[in-house]
Simulated assay, not measured.
Amino acid sequence: MLPIRERRTSTDRRKNDEAIAAELAVALAEGQIEILFQPQFFCASDALAGAEALARWNHPVRGRIGAETMFALAARAGMSEALTRRIASQALAAAAAWPADLRLSLNVTASDIAADDFATVLADVIARSDFPAERLTLELTEQALVRDMEGSAEQIARLADSGVRFALDDFGAGFCNFRYLKILPLHYLKLDRTMVEGIVNDARDLAVLRAIVAMAGALDLAVIAEGIESEAQLEKVRAEGCALFQGFLRARPMEAASFARFAHDGE
């Protein structure tokens, strides 16, 4: 039998998870989940390429809750699939009104990839939308893949066969298992912002960027530079051959209606 203190802790945790699940269910029902869009641009032309969808929970008491915390709460409450469905549905619905040459990027969590029916669930969401799978990119982090690489590869391959593209997100933020690049059907490497912060003034940082871009080119992967905040940084990633960039230099995340106007103004 557990000590009284441990039993109380376990009971408190269960009650807290139940409360979170109830709050999240209300959030999904009442539209408290908001999708912002972070524009992405072509390095070569500065033209708009699409946007990454960023989810936020506008909690009436706790205030705005970011995606990482929100998904962690959803995982503990057993609501990851419901949350993923809602975010994907909202983002795809908004993107369906964009100009036909723009792409949408969605983030994929560890809970998503771990679910046996993830590919089936997402394929169903895409099929119910008016947004073509060929214009959708799913961004994966190493944390989302590390638990079961073979299972992840199978799920990814099923969606890739339907036209969905995949990016390995936050590349360079931590220890990189290069086996991902070998066995996963990836299309993009998305550099973590720490990989571009010093490229203007630090020769070693620039050399690392150059090596990553060369490796990506050999693997037929396009490179996306994240966290571009100065013209000097943009000039460097452009010169080194990065395909796409995003960051506060050109635009901050914006609400769906604002991004739609931004996208159509650029036509």
Rank of each mutant, 00 (worst) to 15 (best):
E154D: 15
F178W: 11
T137K: 09
L136S: 05
V146Q: 07
D169Y: 06
L191D: 05
T194V: 13
H187M: 06
A153M: 10
E150I: 10
R128L: 12
L168V: 00
R128S: 12
F166S: 00
F131H: 06
A127T: 05
E142W: 08
E134W: 08
L189T: 07
R179M: 10
D192P: 09
A153H: 06
M195W: 04
V164R: 07
S152Y: 08
F178P: 12
G151R: 12
I183M: 05
L189N: 00
A160N: 15
E150A: 14
R179H: 13
E134G: 02
D192F: 03
A144S: 12
A127R: 15
D170V: 02
G151Y: 15
A133I: 01
G163D: 10
R165V: 09
K190E: 09
G172Q: 06
E142S: 13
L168E: 03
D192V: 05
R128M: 13
A133V: 03
A157H: 01
D170M: 08
A160G: 14
R135M: 12
T194D: 15
P185I: 12
G198M: 07
A160P: 03
E134Q: 13
A144M: 07
S129G: 07
K182Q: 14
C176I: 02
R179K: 05
F171R: 05
T194M: 11
M149Y: 01
L168C: 01
S129W: 08
V200I: 12
V200Q: 07
E197V: 03
S152D: 03
Q143H: 04
Q155I: 11
V200C: 04
F171I: 10
F166E: 12
E142Q: 05
V125G: 15
D148S: 13
R158L: 11
Q143D: 15
V196W: 11
A173P: 13
A133W: 03
V164L: 13
S129T: 08
D161T: 07
D169Q: 08
P185T: 01
K190H: 02
R135F: 13
F131P: 06
I156V: 07
A160V: 04
S152K: 02
A173D: 09
F166Q: 11
M195G: 09
E134I: 12
R193F: 00
S162K: 14
D130Y: 11
G174P: 06
H187C: 08
V164W: 02
P185M: 06
L138I: 09
D192E: 09
E139C: 02
P185R: 01
G151L: 14
N177H: 13
M195A: 09
I126M: 15
P132N: 10
V146Y: 14
L181D: 05
L159N: 01
L159A: 00
A133G: 02
K190D: 04
F178T: 13
L145H: 04
G172Y: 01
D148W: 06
Y188K: 03
Y188E: 10
I183W: 01
L136I: 01
L189G: 00
Q155W: 11
L184H: 03
G163E: 14
I183V: 14
D169M: 04
A157I: 00
L145K: 06
V146M: 10
F175H: 06
Q143W: 05
L191K: 05
G198I: 07
G198W: 01
D169P: 11
T194S: 15
L186K: 00
R128E: 13
F131R: 05
V196E: 07
V196F: 07
N177M: 12
R193M: 08
S129K: 00
R158N: 07
S152C: 14
K190W: 01
A153T: 11
I199V: 03
D192G: 03
